[in-house]
């Protein structure tokens, strides 16, 4: 696993999935898991895209909203 090459590849492509890196550099599942924190130290944040539900606390309608009790179920979308 060549960390410098991986870092350059990500910086060139801007937005990649972990699978893209895995396939490009022929890495095993275990190696990808080892890699994750190293990417953060390189200043490449790891983002998940399963946060479709938004956060009620930050909503400007929070005070008047009646849907807050369903917060965990992604109330307002």
């Amino acid at each position: 696993m060549n960390l410098e090459q991986i870092k350059e590849y990500i910086k060139e492509n801007k937005e990649l999935s972990l699978l893209d890196i895995k396939e490009k550099f022929n890495l095993s599942e275990s190696e990808i898991k080892v890699l994750k924190p190293f990417l953060i130290t390189f200043g490449i944040p790891l983002k998940t895209v399963n946060e479709i539900h938004s956060i009620c606390e930050e909503c400007p309608l929070n005070n008047s909203c009646k849907k807050k009790s369903e917060k965990d179920l992604g109330c307002c979308n």
Binding site: N13, E15, L16, S17, L18, I44, P45, K47, T48, V49
Partner: peptide, 10 residues
């Protein structure tokens, strides 16, 4: 600005 990042799919 274009900040690179990695997406972890669920």
């Amino acid at each position: 600005e274009d900040i690179p990042f990695i997406i972890e799919l669920p």
